[in-house]
């Protein structure tokens, strides 16, 4: 039994009276300790897929099993417990703006009912683990993008999850910061054995960190396998486009500075 099993997952949305298929018949198994990439263009359904793994989005059809437990069978309370065992980080970090780094990391512990003193001790260690032990009193507005994501990672790890979901976690960061964050994720994967699921539209992210990858196109899983193999011989059009596009984008960056938008002088 794989740690995460997605079986025949379909998600339909109703938009202005019309039913749209965001995902259709997705089958996916993610093994314990993997760093698994899910890649696709924007609108492909990746975000919906990752939100199905912790049931932030309930599938219209199909099943999600975590360690063999069907999430559909859980009561709301059990589901909340399950969610606390699955960490999640986001593109725009989603830190609590009115709380400092320390209190942000304490947040999930507070929710789990841990005593304040104990929570703070743990948070301090986590902030050190992610390399910003000196920033515990800083508010998000005083941190750079990379530092914010480090706080978010520390927060996601606070409840000692077995799975970490990353929803475009590096998309708002410049290439240098992306690299250091990916390095951190890899270290975490090795140190704690956490299964990491990475949603991205950047092939470079997948190539840097993932062992396995699934390619989503138009709500359908079009290709799946070892990263190396897919890089060597992509079969689907989407895979070819994503790998080819990466090169194109790489050159573009040199010629059109506006493509480098958001890559402001960031030091991590």
């Amino acid at each position: 039994m794989s740690e995460i099993e997605i079986r025949n997952l379909t998600k339909k949305f109703e938009v202005k009276g019309q039913v749209v298929d965001a995902l259709r018949g997705i089958d996916l198994s993610i093994e314990k300790g993997d760093i698994f990439g899910i890649i696709g263009m924007s609108g492909a359904g990746k975000s919906t897929l990752v939100r199905s793994i912790n049931y932030l989005e309930k599938p219209t059809e199909g099943k999600v099993l975590i360690d063999g437990v069907d999430l559909e069978s859980l009561t709301e309370k059990q589901l909340r417990k399950k969610r606390s065992e699955i960490g999640m980080i986001f593109q725009s970090f989603h830190l609590l703006e009115q709380k400092n780094a320390m209190d942000n990391v304490c947040f999930p512990l507070e929710i789990a009912g841990m005593k304040k003193k104990q929570a703070r001790e743990k948070a301090r260690k986590l902030l050190e683990t992610v390399g910003i032990g000196d920033k515990e009193k800083s508010y998000p507005s005083q941190l750079s993008g990379g530092q914010k994501q480090r706080v978010a990672i520390a927060r996601a790890l606070a409840t000692e999850p077995k799975i970490l979901l990353c929803d475009e976690a590096t998309s708002a960061l410049d290439p240098q910061t992306t690299k250091s964050i990916l390095g951190l994720l890899k270290k975490i994967n090795e140190k704690y054995g956490i299964t990491i699921v990475i949603i991205t539209h950047q092939m470079s992210v997948v190539s840097q960190i993932c062992k396995k990858v699934a390619i989503i196109d138009g709500g359908v899983l079009v290709e799946e396998g070892d990263v190396e193999e897919i890089f060597r011989s992509p079969k689907s059009d989407a895979a070819k486009e994503l790998i080819f596009e990466k090169k194109v984008r790489y050159i573009k960056n040199f010629e059109q500075p506006e493509d480098a938008e958001g890559q402001v002088k960031e030091v991590v």
Partner: peptide, 27 residues
Amino acid sequence: GVIEMAKSMGASIWQIIFKVLLVEARV
């Protein structure tokens, strides 16, 4: 997004109200 984050951490509605909404909206 912050509310979604709280949900993803397993927060209940009351926890979202008291630990997220009222704190973040305090200004």
